[in-house]
């Protein structure tokens, strides 16, 4: 759904306990998956609205993965471009 994110969609960082393979990215609507050394997984990307955010959290809930935090983040344009590139 988020193949073409709205230019102004806010970015979110969802922190989960346990590493997820990058192939989970499509399961989580195209968010970028980053693995932290401490064993956490960060899902980062644009989330169009609150309903979409809750949908994502429901997916986390249904996997039984422990949810650590959810934050809205400011993304610099360059970083956003990087993320877009990464996805391609």
């Amino acid at each position: 759904m988020l193949d073409k994110p709205l230019p102004n969609a806010p970015f979110y960082e969802i922190r989960l306990k346990g590493h997820l393979d990058s192939q989970w990215a499509s399961w989580f609507d195209g968010l970028t998956i980053t693995l932290e050394a401490n064993g956490d997984t960060l899902l980062i990307g644009p989330v169009v609205d609150q309903a979409a955010l809750h949908g994502l959290l429901k997916k986390v809930r249904d996997l039984g993965m422990p949810l650590v935090s959810v934050v809205q983040i400011q993304v610099l344009d360059s970083r956003q471009n990087d993320l877009e590139k990464e996805k391609k």
């Binding site: 346990g18 590493h19 039984g64």
Partner: peptide, 8 residues
């Protein structure tokens, strides 16, 4: 020893 999500 793995950090991977248990079920994964």
């Amino acid at each position: 020893g793995s950090h991977r999500f248990v079920l994964d």
